[in-house]
Amino acid sequence: MRTGAQGSRVIVTTRDQRVVPAVRASSAYPLEGLSNDDCLSLFAQHAFMHTRNFDYHPHLRAVGERIVKKCRGLPLAAKALGGMLRTQLNHDAWEEILESKI
């Protein structure tokens, strides 16, 4: 039984290259992580409601940059950590995330 329309494709994402032959992928496209600036922008977009930068929250910039460094360019990590901090605009909450083992 076919479930997809003719010409449909499935995209599988993984950081483990051993998955490629396991899913019988026709080809693999290794991706690089985001640049630090792009990762910081993505983090800020999810941490703050109406901006992609720290213009309205300069007191959080330094700790935000250190949090983003822990993300190592991984967009999902930046998005998740930024989202966790969306309602937390105090320095202590951000430091707690920075020091956590997440």
Rank of each mutant, 00 (worst) to 15 (best):
H46M: 05
P21I: 15
S27I: 09
G64I: 04
G4L: 13
N90Y: 07
T3V: 12
A44Q: 08
N53M: 07
D55V: 05
G7N: 12
A77Y: 04
L76W: 14
D92E: 12
A80Q: 02
Y29N: 02
P75T: 15
N36A: 08
A62S: 08
D37T: 08
H91Q: 14
H50E: 15
G83T: 04
W94E: 10
R24C: 09
A93C: 10
G83N: 10
Y29T: 02
Q17V: 11
A47C: 04
E65G: 01
I67V: 12
F48G: 08
V23W: 07
G64D: 09
T13E: 11
R18H: 09
A62V: 08
A80R: 04
I67K: 08
L85G: 06
D16F: 02
E95F: 03
A78V: 07
L42F: 05
L74E: 01
Y29D: 02
N90K: 08
R15M: 02
E95W: 01
R24P: 00
I11M: 14
S41M: 11
N36F: 01
R24L: 02
G4E: 11
S41D: 08
L81F: 14
A22C: 05
V19Q: 10
S26H: 13
S41V: 07
M49D: 11
D37W: 00
T3E: 13
